[in-house]
Computed example of a mutant assay.
Amino acid sequence: MHFKLIVAFVNDEVTDKVLDAAREAGATGATVINHARGEGLNKKTTFFGLNLDIQVDVILFVVEEHLSRHILETIDEVGGLDKNSGAGMAIQLDVEDAIGVQHQINKLEDVIKGKL
C-alpha cells in the first residue's frame, strides 16, 4: 500500500471543519500543529504598528494514495482555499516509506478494494 502526505495550511477557525470533512472523505487521522503564521501574496496589514496576523493551523494527513485526490479536493471545498485569498493552501507529497501505519492499512484494505 502506498501513501501520500497531505499538508494543509488553514485558518484556525476552519480546522475542525476540515478535519471532519477529511475523515468523511477517507482520512484515517491527522496531526494538527496550532498557531503557525505565514504570509501570502499580499502582506498582512497593520493597525497602529501592530501586526494583524491571522493564526493558521498546519494539518498533516497520511492517506492512502487512491483516496488522496478526493481528500485534497474536500479540504479545498470546506476550507475555501481556491475561492478566498488568504484562506490557506494544501499540498500532497509522495511518502516513500512509513511505519506505525499498520492499523490504518488493515482498515483501508477493504475500502480500497471497493474503489479499484
Rank of each mutant, 00 (worst) to 15 (best):
G86R: 10
Q92G: 02
K113E: 14
I112R: 05
G100C: 02
V58R: 07
A36K: 13
D94C: 00
D53P: 00
Q92W: 11
V63Q: 03
E65Q: 11
V62L: 15
Q55W: 08
E109G: 00
K107S: 09
A25M: 10
S85C: 01
L50N: 14
F47M: 09
G86D: 06
A98M: 12
G88Q: 05
E73K: 14
L93Y: 10
I99F: 12
T31I: 07
V56N: 14
N51Y: 09
I105P: 00
H103I: 00
L108W: 03
L50V: 13
I99N: 07
L50D: 12
K44A: 14
K113W: 01
I75V: 15
N51V: 02
N42D: 09
R37C: 03
G40S: 09
K44Q: 12
S68N: 03
V63G: 03
R37K: 14
G79E: 03
A87I: 07
T31D: 05
R23P: 00
E65A: 11
D53M: 07
I71S: 05
N34C: 01
Q102E: 15
A36E: 09
A27M: 07
I91Y: 15
V62T: 13
E73H: 12
T31A: 06
M89T: 11
N42P: 00
N34G: 02
N42A: 14
I54A: 10
F48A: 09
L41D: 10
L81Y: 08
A30V: 04
E96G: 14
I91C: 12
Q55K: 15
G100M: 02
V32L: 08
I71K: 09
I112S: 01
L50E: 14
A30L: 05
E109M: 04
D57F: 02
E64R: 14
L108E: 10
D82N: 15
Q102K: 11
K43W: 02
N34Y: 14
E73A: 13
N42F: 12
E64W: 04
D57Q: 07
V32W: 09
G86K: 10
E109V: 04
K113P: 00
F47Q: 08
L93K: 02
L72S: 06
L72E: 10
H66I: 02
Q102L: 04
E39Q: 12
G86I: 06
A90D: 03
Q92R: 08
R69T: 13
I75C: 06
G26P: 08
V58F: 06
F61C: 03
K113H: 13
G49P: 09
I33R: 03
K43P: 11
